[in-house]
Amino acid sequence: MTPLDIMEALRDVPEDLIDIDYEHLSVSCTAEQETLRTETDMPENGKRMRGSIVLSYLMTACCAAACIGGIAVLICMTKLSGRYSVQPQDPAPLQPAVTVTATAAFPNTATTASALYTDLLIRNTAQPALTAESLTYTEQTSVPVSTANPVIQTTAPPVTTASETVTATHTTASVTKQTPDLL
């Protein structure tokens, strides 16, 4: 015998035992509430479920928006930091190409340029921290020296092989000289 057997056997008892005025006892009092519970509460549950679904969608959307915003901020910060950051400069090539343009009215410009070149070369090797201002110094004040190009890399190792060009434009004399290994 199982509980289900007893439940089924209960369905076969005489009607006078079943008749407990259930219609008025239960139906009129609580069955209406149960009707509400079984029928109208289901839409309520549905509403609650729908509300929770909408809420979850909203939360998902907010999370997605926050993620996208965070990524955008990261990108902007990366770009800004790249723009304003101090980028390490590439070491300049070993080319202290000192170009001396002599425009003075010397009869022998080539000689003058050569002397000037020698002077500069000595200064360059003697004073590694040679600046553009110091390059303007010359005993021959009449010879203007272009200081546009001399880029002196103070951190670079001493010049060992460099090509230097001395040009005298007045008499169209151009001297190109290969510097020896001085150091």
């Binding site: 007893i6 239960s26 609580t30």
Partner: peptide, 16 residues
């Protein structure tokens, strides 16, 4: 009978 024939809940039986 309320409980085992009509399958009412205990709360309903208590209320009625």
């Amino acid at each position: 009978m309320q409980r085992y024939f009509y399958s009412d809940s205990v709360q309903t039986i208590a209320q009625t």
